[in-house]
Design a protein around this nucleic acid. Structure first.
Lengths: 192, 192
DNA sequence: CTCGTATTATTACCAGGTATTAATTAAGAT
DNA sequence: ATCTTAATTAATACCTGGTAATAATACGAG
């Protein structure tokens, strides 16, 4: 079997290809060919073997993620998926940890996502035109990792006028990973 | 001069076109033509008049926004731009409020962005392989609005072993909008 | 030298366009 | 009823960045 040894092996080249597209998914086959010192057909064969789609598909995948994200943050105004809610009382939301939410090196979920999930769940519990967070006291108990599914539970513990006190508890499996106490304030649009 | 009045005027159609692409930027001219009941060339002329680029350009624009965003959250590992830092001591970061960060109705910055800015600044102050947030106590003092520029100041107030205590203060102009006290923990990769 | 893999080249085809020119349609004015 | 003019549709050549398939070539090991 003729395993060619040129400047680089096929394996090395394919690893470089993956790394290049990881760093910049908007590279054409022609650009990749030049970068890796091989012909365009070779790049195409490599992509085929590695199951990497063409530029336009890659671009669209990235765009759709973003579009899905800003819509769920913009319209739903919630981080995580609301799976159960009883307005004014309690609620549950689920957040699946995606690669763009973690620290590069450790694959640990960046803390503010846990905060955001709990905070937006707390806000969702209150039925008013505008609900703002006033204060929060939170504890990060255990690191959450890529692909973990975080379930946040929240319930209203007290109310004083337009201020609500909400406690949250986020878990991965049976482990508590985050606890929070939030004070949120309900306002009407005209008193801003 | 013959101003045609068919089912809809040119103006109406163009408004619908804008609305359609606003809701879903991934529509081809052919799909748009069918939706609006005109021919493909008409859609092209409309896009030309309105300065709307073709599908593949639109897709790429959306994708690049996302990519820019996840990279600034993923590699920089910081929300907001670090403008000044003295590792282990103090730092300053600036965050400009973009449309995707605010509540739709009120244009008020969603609270967790302020948290994220302060939290990631706090983490950036500590020089260790891995830095995790342990707890936080925060207060949201004033609503921050679209296009505001939030400047977060952080400084280390105390240290106990691998735990650091950091206080932050975020301002828009001369107004305090957010204050936080964070406990962050420095770890080495091997003790995870 | 020959076998087998890797690589490169070539060709036909596709989607979703740009850009241009020409033909057709519809409605108001005269 | 016909003229005028904007709006619309049609037709054509060309572009990028591919897919898919087939053939030609390079090269190293046995």
């Amino acid at each position: 079997m003729g395993a060619l040894k040129r400047n680089q092996t096929k394996y090395e080249r394919q690893q470089k290809l993956i790394a290049s597209l990881d760093e910049n998914p908007f590279l054409t086959d022609e650009e990749l060919a030049e970068m890796l010192g091989v012909s365009v057909p070779t790049i195409r064969l490599d992509r085929l073997e590695l199951g990497i789609p063409e530029l336009r598909v890659r671009t669209k995948e990235v765009a759709e993620q973003f579009y899905g994200k800003i819509r769920s943050l913009g319209t739903g105004e919630l981080i995580g998926d609301l799976v159960d809610i009883e307005i004014g009382n309690r609620g549950v939301s689920v957040l699946e940890v995606r690669p763009d939410m973690v620290f590069g090196k450790t694959k640990i979920l960046r803390g503010h996502y846990l905060f955001a999930q709990a905070n937006s769940l707390a806000v969702a519990l209150i039925n008013a035109e505008v609900v703002l967070t006033g204060r929060a006291e939170v504890r990060f108990l255990k690191p959450v990792l890529l692909r973990d599914k975080v379930i946040a539970y929240a319930h209203v513990t007290n109310r004083k006028g337009s201020s609500y006190f909400i406690e949250t508890n986020s878990r991965v499996g049976n482990t508590d990973v985050f606890k929070g106490k939030f004070t949120v304030i309900a306002k009407e649009l005209n008193d801003l």
